[in-house]
């Protein structure tokens, strides 16, 4: 059965993010890192908005190749905006938002 959203945005598609937009990369559970299928507002977005959008898309099955997860919960996750930095070799040429578990351990 084809999910409607999947049909519109195949997992292999890669849109171009504008200078005021960002790709959102979510690291959720082990071996579960994925991008939201389309860019989000970066310059005028907030951490709370990015987190809410990502969580909503996870809960509604809006992420191609990823099953709907009604219990998806990003409330305790860190949200880090990473501005584009094309001036350095290896620097990103697009804005990015990283959503990931909090990391405070080093052992």
């Amino acid at each position: 059965m084809t999910n409607e959203v999947t049909a519109i945005v195949p997992a292999t598609a890669r849109l171009v993010a504008g200078p005021d937009e960002a790709w959102v990369t979510v690291t959720y559970k082990e071996a579960d890192t994925f991008d939201l299928p389309r860019p989000v507002p970066f310059t005028h977005g907030t951490k709370e908005q990015w987190r809410a959008w990502a969580q909503e898309m996870m809960r509604t099955g809006g992420i191609p190749g990823r099953p709907m997860d009604l219990n998806a919960d990003l409330s305790n996750f860190s949200v880090e905006p990473v501005p584009r930095d094309p001036t350095h070799p290896g620097g990103l040429d697009f804005n990015r938002v990283l959503i990931r578990p909090k990391t405070d351990y080093g052992c």
Binding site: N76, K102, T103, D104, Y105
Partner: peptide, 25 residues
């Protein structure tokens, strides 16, 4: 800085100018 989450799912290797300490656990 080297930091990981408690479940072994995510780690960060960050130079200090970008590193925010996350006090959990």
């Amino acid at each position: 800085h080297g930091a990981v989450d408690a479940n072994g799912t995510c780690g960060r290797v960050y130079w200090d100018e970008r590193f925010e300490i996350e006090p959990v656990g």
